[in-house]
Design a protein around this nucleic acid. Sequence first.
DNA 1: GGCCAGGACACCA
DNA 2: TGGTGTCATGGC
Length: 224
Amino acid sequence: MLNLMTIYQRLLDHYGPRHWWPAESDFEMVIGAILTQNTNWKNVEQAISNLRIARKLSVPSINALTQNELELLIQPAGFFRQKAERLKLFSNYLSENYQGQLKIMLQQPLAPLREELLSLKGIGPETADAILLYAGRQPSFVVDAYTGRIFQRLGLLDRSEKYEKIRSLFMTNLPSDVPLFNEYHALIVEHAKQHCQKKPRCENCPLANECCYLLDHHKSAELV
DNA sequence: GGCCAGGACACCA
DNA sequence: TGGTGTCATGGC
């Protein structure tokens, strides 16, 4: 069975470094993390572009927007009503607790900071870990839907394993290293997008097709 | 025209 | 605790 570092190395060799997260500031990263919840990144890019053109990629400018104004700007990202609410809640929280400075919030130790992020409405485990890792540069492994599917296929996880258990698999079996966690999650996403999403079998698979699915999500194991 | 995307939450049994 | 419905747009 492949181990986690072998899988990582194969993905890295195949795809090269991904240079994540694609954002021009840490606050923009947080906005992207909320906007990309269950949403194609292309749609998120359009929404962020709207915010950039309108010069609204900052805490005070998000706070100053009305709910309706923000909804209009982020509409392409889908779920725009609840995402506008989540963005305003987070931005307002920073203003009230950290003088509007994300950097101050993210300076806290990992465990309590993670709990604090999870206590905020609209920030679940994946979003919290993405913020911790990519904006806070703290070693918190990010698990997404791809991770569960791919590593189940690889035999490293049981079916329908829960978020925290999947995360702990990586956290306890990998060195606690920010660049490694950064790259690993980005490579998993890249692999799923490039290789596994549309084809049950793919050519030149860096994981020898052991990961490829068309497996579950909505369908269930039709593959071998 | 249907499926799906870099989730989170509320509600129910 | 687990299952299900809801939120919404745009690319393929």
